[in-house]
Design a protein around this nucleic acid. Structure first.
Lengths: 336, 336
DNA sequence: TTGTATGCGTTATCAA
DNA sequence: TTGATAACGCATACAA
């Protein structure tokens, strides 16, 4: 079933069929209808390979991430996919894990599939070491197709980032904690990515701005895991360190903090204030519900796709980086 | 950059380059190395369209779901994608929402992209009405390519289902509740899909088997939402109905039940036992943590991909339906 | 072991 | 407005 079958049955040439297929106006109404009727009768579908061979585009965007089962990333994929579809593009998903060589392989694979562009989701995808060459393969790929980063930053030609203002978000939360009377504030974080380090810096700077001491054991790098967060706080508590607030870089850690407080009969928020990050469903699972930072993921995603479409349209004034401010959603684990 | 460039630079014919590309053994070691070297130097990547044009396969599987931001589905996508990759296949994701015509459109789109097979995730994708023609478009598509259902069932040629034994899982949980002394058991559920109705039936049958009354207001269809579950239980409680157990078809509803109990100073599990479903992270967010049914999602997904590969290999003895038993993960909201 | 020639289904260029 | 034909890049049957 191909264009020849249609042309034969309709009594026209393949060129005419092709014109009908592509909405070319240089076809008489009568001929067009005749061809459309035949296409319908035959249930004809154009062959995407043959088309791609000529046009060298598949109207498909590759989406890469380390782990699509992560709630934040899963939501991003949903939004991206929806926006791309609205713009006539499909998406091809690659979950790479955290191994550098498998990230490279996935990128090569998407390129070999001739995707028209690539969207990378999550700051953990990139190596945060600016000295290393670990992101070189991405800048190299950007020579041939545009690359977009959602919640990640990398500079370079044909690379576009859309990020949330993580530094300012954590700075604000920390400041609010201090303003509401907290002085011994623990910060639990999950990642040393660009975004992760920005958040940490926000915490430190807010302490400094208020003349509070930055204590190493009050900043803890922790796997993204409820139990681990609870364990570390228990450990800190048992070791005699006192703290009246916990700020986290992810809601799961904040859930751990709530569980720690409940297990030790520490009242929330009077004796211990807790703030989460990402404003996920986890923030409303606990009792009390958790104050959390809304990172505007949907807006990040729609902005990324918008920029992508502009780049495809040949607009060469698309900003390399877009920063979107976060919101703080106040609930019952804080007294501000 | 194509096969001709490589052949010219390597001083061989395009046929030889193609043979090297496809691992054909009828090439001398010397020639092979020469060609590989040139391919490397030129950074040559074969054009997938040209290849697909001849072979009419893209080594790509379409994955369809209603909503990839649903935690259950997000996990399924992760597992499926990983298994497909392990077998040399890529995946193309389509989130359709719940609208029938957009489901049909997405299916058409995947077919027009010449995917080699389609995996549909989630029982909500299918219409559960066996009388309606709403699933006809799927059986029609199955005439041309194999269709796999993960946690969904549809019978027909070239359609394969992998499902969890939901009926028996809920039957077991309900029986255990009864054995541990509960008599007034509420069942909250989110869906009237095939899987959803099976679960409901499991609940009813377990009650009947123990000579307990099936009361309509003790079975409630509820959106997948923490607050809604809490509200319904409050309503039931306020209306004077007494209950000593809540079984749910999703962890989110069980979280709502925990919140209801905490808000009303009802002790868990003594005064109220609670069971969730899907054994998601939500089950361990609350205090106490929730007993939940592990639906073996990873096993469902690997089994589906296994079956897919067997079908592609021409194995015509692949079972149309595979049923995998669930596990009950006992935690602190039940006394069994 | 290697090379030549053809077909895959479409789009686009040129001619009519 | 329509038709004939080249081009896209690869795999493969057949020839050498």
């Amino acid at each position: 079933m191909n264009i020849y079958d249609v042309s034969e049955k309709a009594g026209v040439s393949i060129a005419t069929v092709s014109r009908v297929l592509n909405g070319n106006s240089r076809v008489s109404e009568k001929t067009r209808n005749k061809v459309l009727k035949v296409m319908n009768e035959l249930g004809y579908t154009p062959n995407i390979f043959a088309r791609g061979l000529g046009l060298n585009t598949m109207k498909t965007i590759g989406i890469m991430c380390t782990d699509s089962s992560d709630m934040y990333i899963a939501n991003a994929i949903f939004y991206l996919q929806r926006e791309l579809r609205n713009n006539g593009y499909d998406s091809m998903l690659c979950c790479t894990g955290n191994n550098l060589s498998s990230k490279q392989q996935s990128l090569d694979l998407l390129i070999s599939k001739r995707v028209d562009g690539i969207i990378i989701v999550g700051s953990k995808f990139l190596s945060s070491n600016p000295e290393s060459d670990d992101n070189r393969y991405i800048t190299a790929a950007a020579e041939n197709l545009p690359i977009f980063l959602v919640n990640g930053h990398l500079s370079g030609r044909n690379i576009y980032s859309v990020i949330c203002n993580d530094y300012y978000a954590v700075y604000s939360v920390t400041s609010k904690m201090i303003q509401s009377g907290r002085r011994d504030i623990v910060y639990l974080y999950t990642s040393t990515s660009h975004s992760g380090l920005n958040k940490l810096m926000g915490y430190k700077d807010a302490l400094c701005a208020n003349d509070l001491e930055v204590r190493p054991n009050y900043m803890h790098l922790c796997t993204k895991n409820i139990i681990r967060a609870k364990e570390y706080l228990s450990h800190l508590h048992d070791s005699g360190a006192s703290f009246d607030a916990v700020i986290t870089s992810d809601d799961s850690l904040a859930v751990g903090a709530v569980k720690f407080a409940l297990a030790n009969h520490i009242s929330i928020p009077d004796e211990l204030s807790i703030a989460g990050y990402n404003n996920s469903i986890l923030a409303i699972c606990t009792e009390p519900e958790i104050t959390s930072v809304d990172t505007k993921l949907e807006e990040l995603c729609t902005t990324a796709v918008d920029k992508l479409m502009k780049v495809f349209a040949g607009n060469d004034t698309v900003a390399g980086q877009t920063v979107i401010p976060a919101d703080i959603v106040t609930r019952d684990t804080t007294s501000f």
